[in-house]
Every structure is written in structure tokens, then in C-alpha cells.
């Protein structure tokens, strides 16, 4: 199980990387953490002619406060995010989700940008960033553009990112100080790809009703899922089992074609989506209540 040949470039700057991607758009793939790409290459399921290794671009590894939220450099490792105190204070949901990615040695390499660009529907961060209304900055020769998470994820392993573009930054707006959030997932073994995972954010009004609710789900469709019907249904409701049940029903009604494999059928994933939605909402609401 050894990877096929490729040409290798290790640019030291974003400009250099972008130039390479523009020049070799047909054949180049970006090598970020490599924790998804290299196994595929070892199994010869991926045959990139050329790798642009961006691990040496130190300017892409950072976690910075941004507009009440966070800006994450694309090459921020999950292990860094998991331990970042600014992130824990501003967006604990991100930290909670980063901790769920694989195992420690995987998180030492895996990057937030890689997870977004690879867009595996089973990955945690895409679902979380979708729920957090994140936006992604991509750079190309003509400059940069910003794509909302909503527009970014197109389908199974498919994004709005062009082969000649480099994902450079993830911008995650802050949450109201009174918001509560939670991420829960279920997998066969700890650290395995989740059979379903749910990120929930709840903001409560002064009177304790739900002012705003946001949800993001992984592993229950070809792309991460943002169930807006369920979110709409929750607004103005009182937190509690009745609201969670209704939201969960709306979530699974809206699911389109959950994957089915030996670890979980589509039906079981629907079932889990419902169970975990309720659990995530309850936990987020409890935290919101504590923040109130």
C-alpha cells in the first residue's frame, strides 16, 4: 500500500502557492494535513500528478480574534484549535468539535482548512461552520473572494473551491454572549467517523424563549446539512422536550438521501439524527440558560 508518483512543490508563501495552482490547475492538488488525502493515495484511490504542500506556509497557521468571533488560518491544526484559549472563550463549539476529529496524532496534523476543502460529509468542522454562518476566504491570481459556508459545500466531496484557488482563511462570526452551544456525535468506536453528528446553537430571550436556534449536521447526507426548517420552528418556542421533538422531526423530514453503509443504514442514521438533535439542543439550551 504505497502512494503513486507525484511531483512535489513546497511553496513558502500564499502567493507562491497560488501561482503554482494557477499554473498547474489540471494536475495539482493541495496537500494540507494529509490525513485524508495520503490514505487515499496509499490505497491508490487518488493519483495526483502534483502536490502543492502548503505545510511550510507559516502565515496560514493562526487563530485570531475577529469581529467578535474568530479568524482561523487554513493551516491551523485541529490540535491547536482544540487547545486554543481564545477559541474556547469565544466559540467553544469549535473547540468541542475539533476534539472529536480522529485521534490525537491525527489532530496534530489535520487542519481546519483541509477539512473544509476536502468536504467529507462525515467530517465535524464543515457541519459546525455551517451552523456558525462561517465564511471562507479563497485566494486566486485575481485576488480573493469570500464564500459563505452555505454556498461553499456543494455535495459529496465537492465545494465551490476552484482548482486554481487556495483556501486561506475561515471566518467565524461570534455568537451572542448568552448563546449556548453543543456538539454531539455517535460513532461505532471513539474517534471513528461519526454515523451522525449534530452541532446546535441556542440563544434565549429575556423571557427564556428561544430567540435563535441553529443546527448543523454531519454524516447524514452527501454534504453537511443546515436544517433551516427546524431552526425556524424553534424560534419563539420554550426550550424543552416538546420543542426538541418537533425540531428533530423537522430535521429528519428534511434529510435528503443519508448515506447507507455497513456501519449504519440510512434509516439508522435518520434515527440517530433525531436522537442527537434532541440531545444537542437540550445541551445547548442548558448552557444558554446558564449564560442568561
Amino acid at each position: 500500500m504505497k502512494p503513486p508518483k507525484f511531483r512535489y512543490f513546497a511553496p513558502r508563501s500564499v502567493e507562491e502557492a497560488v501561482a503554482l495552482l494557477v499554473e498547474h490547475a489540471d494536475e495539482a492538488r493541495v496537500l494540507a494535513g494529509g490525513q485524508s488525502l495520503v490514505p487515499l493515495m496509499n490505497m491508490r484511490l487518488a493519483h495526483p500528478d502534483m502536490l502543492v504542500d502548503i505545510n511550510g506556509i507559516s502565515e496560514l497557521a493562526y487563530v485570531r480574534p475577529w469581529d467578535g468571533g474568530l479568524a482561523l488560518g487554513a493551516m491551523t491544526r485541529d490540535a491547536t484549535l482544540e487547545r486554543d484559549t481564545t477559541a474556547a472563550a469565544r466559540l467553544p463549539l469549535l473547540v468541542e468539535a475539533a476534539h472529536c476529529v480522529g485521534h490525537p496524532a491525527i489532530r496534530n496534523r489535520s487542519t481546519v482548512g483541509g477539512s473544509i476543502a476536502h468536504a467529507d460529509p462525515a467530517a465535524e468542522l464543515p457541519a459546525v461552520l455551517l451552523a456558525l454562518n462561517a465564511a471562507f476566504e479563497v485566494r486566486s491570481r485575481s485576488g480573493s473572494r469570500t464564500i459563505s459556508a452555505q454556498d461553499f459545500f456543494k455535495g459529496y466531496l465537492s465545494t465551490d473551491l476552484k482548482a486554481s484557488e487556495l483556501l486561506t482563511e475561515l471566518r467565524v462570526p461570534g455568537l451572542p454572549s448568552k448563546a449556548g452551544s453543543a456538539f454531539v456525535e455517535f460513532s461505532r468506536r471513539e474517534g471513528d467517523y461519526a454515523l451522525a453528528g449534530v452541532a446546535a446553537v441556542i440563544t434565549l430571550d429575556e423571557d427564556g424563549t428561544i430567540a435563535d436556534a441553529r443546527l448543523g449536521l454531519c454524516s447524514v447526507g452527501p454534504a453537511p446539512v443546515r436544517p433551516q426548517a427546524a431552526e425556524a420552528l424553534l424560534r419563539g418556542q420554550h426550550p424543552g422536550d416538546e420543542a426538541w421533538d418537533a425540531a428533530a422531526t423537522a430535521v429528519i423530514t428534511g434529510l435528503d438521501n443519508p448515506p447507507s453503509d455497513i456501519h449504519g443504514s440510512a434509516d439508522y442514521r435518520r434515527h440517530l439524527a433525531s436522537v442527537l438533535t434532541k440531545e444537542a439542543l437540550a445541551s445547548a439550551a442548558e448552557r444558554a440558560e446558564r449564560n442568561r
Binding site: 495520503v38 505545510n55 490540535a79 496534530n108 496534523r109
Partner: peptide, 13 residues
């Protein structure tokens, strides 16, 4: 100093 899978990293890296 950080643990990594040496099967998922190229020597050149």
C-alpha cells in the same frame, strides 16, 4: 515533539 502517523507523512515533509 508531536505524535504523527509516519505512514501519512512523506519523508520530504
Amino acid at each position: 515533539g508531536q505524535s504523527v502517523r509516519s505512514c501519512l507523512m512523506f519523508a520530504v515533509q
